[in-house]
Structures are given as C-alpha cells and as structure tokens.
C-alpha cells in the first residue's frame, strides 16, 4: 500500500485541518505527521468504509442522521492518527501481548487495523459483507465484552465515534440542543419527556 494507491482518502480534509492548526498554534505543521503516525499507511477505502459502518451501527439514523452519515468514521481515523482518547499511549504488560500483531514499533496500537481484524475474526468472514442484523450482533458482543473489561481498545474507538457524532453540527445541534449564548440561567426547571440534553453544557461534557 502506497500513498499513490490511496486516492480515495480525502487528504485535503487532513490538510485543511493541518492548516487551521498551524494558524491556531502559530507553529509549522509537518503534513506527514498530521497524516499518519510512525510510517502508518494512509487509511484505505476499506478501513474508511468499515469505520463509517461501525459508527453508523453505534449511532444509527433515526429522526436524525447517524454517526456514519455525519462523517464520524473519518473523524475517528483523524483522531486516532493524532492520539485522542489515549490512542498513542504505548501498551504494556498483558495488553502488549494480547495485541502484539497490531503494535507499532513504539508500542502503540494500530486501532483501525485491530478493529478490522477483530470484527472479521468474530464474523468468521468479512464483517462488512454480513447483513445488518449480524453485523449489529457481532458489534454488540464486542461492545459488551469491552465495557466489562478494564482496558479495551474498542473503548477508545467507540468514544471517538461519540465525540465525532455529538460534536458534529447534526449530532450537537439537531439530535441534542446547542446554545452558544444562553443569555440566562434557569436553575430549576421541570424536565419534560421531550427535553433533549445540551451538547453546549461544557461542564457536563467535561464531568458528566
């Protein structure tokens, strides 16, 4: 896999981010470090399609769009490439053994590659080729196991799906409420069944 064969990946998305970052931080950003870590290949179309599908399984389309629909899959890949959710903390001990096939030289996990292999292993075939109900069942099993465990690589991926979705315009302001300038504080209101949570309740986002 070379960069030349990964045209499907929207480099400009990453580079646009890099440019903005360079402005914000007033430091030059090396495009290569923005694109990938430690000699990683660029995400393949297959990985991007898988991540989009998984995102959509976690947060499906209802009255509002799902996480895959709003690009949370690509956000997960961007975020993993930049170490969000502790994605670039080297694994040690038992975890390093368990996931040794997917470790970079620095001991960090190639989350997306692991997820692809893990889902295919559980599916007994290519996960992405399974019908919806079976894909969902495979992912439910993985999710249940992961949240029963102390540390599990799925948690970082799932958390980034949530971040990708609820900080998107649709997830943040249509599925939830978003109010940048509330203008007042009402300390005690009755909670109605139709009330939606606020994505702009920053303390709740941090500590909730």
């Amino acid at each position: 896999m070379t960069a030349a064969s990964s045209k499907g990946w929207k480099r400009r998305d990453f580079l646009a981010g890099a440019t903005l970052l360079a402005v914000a931080a007033a430091t030059p950003v090396d495009a290569a470090t923005v694109l990938r870590k430690g000699g990683d290949r660029l995400p393949t179309p297959a990985i991007r399609a898988l991540m989009k599908d998984v995102a959509q399984l976690v947060i499906p389309r209802t009255k509002t769009a799902g996480a895959g629909d709003v690009g949370a899959g690509d956000f997960v890949l961007l975020a993993l490439a930049h170490g969000l959710e502790g994605a670039h903390r080297p694994l040690t001990g038992e975890a390093a053994t368990t996931y040794k096939l997917f470790l970079r030289a620095d001991g960090t996990l190639r989350h997306a590659d692991w997820l692809q292999a893990e889902l295919n292993r559980r599916a007994g075939t290519r996960f992405i080729a399974l019908p919806l109900a079976k894909r969902r069942a495979v992912l439910v099993a993985l999710d249940t196991e992961a949240f029963a465990a102390r540390d599990h690589p799925w948690k970082a991926i799932k958390n980034l799906i949530l971040t990708g979705y609820y900080t998107s315009e649709i997830g943040g302001s249509k599925e939830l409420n978003y109010e940048l300038v509330p203008g007042r504080f009402d300390p005690d209101l009755p909670l109605k069944p139709t009330d939606r949570a606020f994505s702009s309740d920053w303390s709740a986002v941090d500590f909730g």
């Binding site: 948690k155 609820y166 949570a197 309740d201 303390s203 709740a204 986002v205 500590f207 909730g208």
Partner: peptide, 12 residues
C-alpha cells in the same frame, strides 16, 4: 451537574 452525551463513554 446533569450528565450529557459524554456519559455514553462509560456505558455499554
């Protein structure tokens, strides 16, 4: 405070 979407990070 009342939790918002980030509570999902702790939930299966």
């Amino acid at each position: 405070l009342q939790s918002t979407w980030t509570q999902g990070k702790r939930m299966a």
